[in-house]
Design a binder for these strands. Structure first.
Lengths: 199, 199, 199, 199
DNA sequence: AATGAATGAGGCTTCATTCAT
DNA sequence: TATGAATGAAGCCTCATTCAT
């Protein structure tokens, strides 16, 4: 439909503005201007400012998860999967400064609580990706036999923190440097047989 | 002074309200009510809403860091130091639901950028604690010879994420469980001689 | 445009209220009420209270100057021009109690300083009118050969004072009386050849 | 009394601050600070902000009128009296930048209406000075037989305007220049026998 | 579909004034 | 006399939302 195209234009504009000013400081007028239309018209497509925000973020998260999920599905080796998941998520976000900015500002996006979590389903998808990798690794004897659920959640958190918080433009320390140190430490801690693991 | 006592009362009230509603959603009137005084009078002690917020957070961070720093200074073993730092920070925050909530909402508190960072000095103190422990561990041959600065910053981030993000009341997974798994993984990845390290 | 019409309605209402209470004592709400709209809507047309005030005054001054300028342009005799300028300015303001009141309260409107003078250009127009008359009078030998610039500024001041300050409603002395005496004295002092001048 | 000395200190401080910011923009706190005391204490000496303002201005006007009156009383020649009145008023104010500033901002000080005029009596004194000079000049045949009351009021106004409005610091044109042109024109228009008059 | 205009609720901040000590 | 603290009433401005056209 033509309507969906228009909506996407609005979400794109909204992403830009929300990323820059945050939810509260962003006015519906800002978004409308960025989208080249008027405030009144924006309300023709969304029901409220909150609705606009959530649809905007959901749309961006969806694209992100889809990109990563597809890439991971194309390899078999579990360590490789882990690496790809980590690095592609990283690389993807590197090119998505706006989404990064929003995630930084609004950590609640990853709250993982079913109730009142507007992004619950999307997050579940990402969590599942990690859990699958962990299970596979344990089953294949490549990973220590950790408790899958809390570990998945832990990794999800670190991964979020890793990919996002550290890459806020203004932070001084080299992102790559920290990324390397971090991945090494995590994998070293996760693998049952270091040599094989890091090979 | 009597004035400082009053200020502290205000900060305490402010912490409570900011924790509940966040900066933007909190009105100065909310804080005044909570403190049992009038809006006008609050402005007798702070110069603006922003000022109120920053002084409130600084005050809470200060107490936190002091508590942890003192405890760490009382032991010598580096692994023990690391553990105490991690666990005390954890335990301290467990009892500080309000501070936790604020830290979750306003990640920028830990931005670590000298310029325009209102909490820079306080953060530096926490970072220094970690760096000192890392240096000591490396010097004593207990830790791998990691690059101290980025690793400290990484740990600081994980530690923040760890202690805070995961313990938001509404999150379901057991904090203790994730804490154990996480500490094990990190230490295992950090120590040069696992057996000695985890002994 | 319809928008300009609305703006004019606002300016008219604002003139009324500013005239009555002065800038500081007037609230934007007062103006909105007088204009039969809401405060918020006023801000749709102006950007701030100050902006509202300046646009209001400018608009009124413009009308005044235009009225006088057109009338003066229609006669040739310089003494007649001077008289018309003086008397029409007078008569015009007689019917503009509101503008008079504002001018009385805010003398800075006539400050004649280019820098940061919001009414500079409008004032320049009035000054030019006087200068032209003086120059013509001198050239034709009807006026003494006074120094044009300071004299014009002097006359502008007296003229402002004359037309406005003296006619504040509450002042008791007859306006006409003072006007006559004043004009006679000024012209007598200005003309090179009294008989011809006052003929 | 000691109390009066303290009051004068306050008025002096108030004059300075009112001159700089105007009545509305001046806070009682500003005045108190300038006077080296606290807001609360100022209210021990005056009953309200308005009261403070009026007493401050009255005090300054009184000094001004006294100075001019005494000087005029010491000469006999009426033209000389006129000149002295004009020039001394001028010179006096030249040294009183603060009073000048206040008079510029608050023209209503010279409103000459008995009712609700807080400075009525003081103004009357100044008016009387002019009237006396006019009467003497007419009686001695030095001045045209003008109508004393409106002319006195006119001169009072011009004189106020002259002495004050023109000397606002920021105005560009030379004060002296305009003063000369103005005095010449006024006296020329006032004197019955020009030669004798300007001798 | 789109726009301009309008509304109204609130938020931050300032300050004259009062009062206990 | 003098102070610090407290109060409460406004005032300016913003903005999400609605609506007639």
């Amino acid at each position: 439909m033509d309507r969906d195209k228009k909506k996407n234009e609005i979400f794109q504009a909204a992403l830009k503005v929300f990323a820059r000013f945050g939810y509260q400081k962003t006015t519906v007028d800002d978004v409308a201007s960025e989208a080249g239309m008027t405030k009144g018209n924006v309300y023709f497509y969304v029901s409220s400012k909150r609705d606009l925000y959530e649809k905007t973020v959901s749309s961006a998260l969806q694209k992100w998860r889809d990109t990563v999920g597809e890439a991971v599905a194309q390899v078999d080796d579990v360590v490789e999967k882990f690496s790809i998941m980590a690095s592609l998520s990283f690389e993807y976000l590197v090119g998505q400064e706006e989404l990064r900015s929003i995630l930084t500002m609004d950590q609640s996006i990853f709250s993982l609580t079913p109730r009142e979590d507007r992004f619950y389903e999307i997050n579940l998808g990402a969590m599942q990706l990690i859990k699958d990798i962990l299970k596979q690794g344990i089953k294949e004897g490549r990973f220590w036999s950790v408790d899958v659920d809390p570990t998945a959640e832990l990794l999800f958190s670190i991964y979020i923190m890793f990919l996002i918080k550290r890459y806020v433009k203004s932070e001084g320390v080299s992102a790559a440097r920290m990324y390397e140190e971090g991945m090494t430490i995590i994998l070293r801690g996760l693998c049952a047989t270091p040599p094989a693991c890091l090979a």
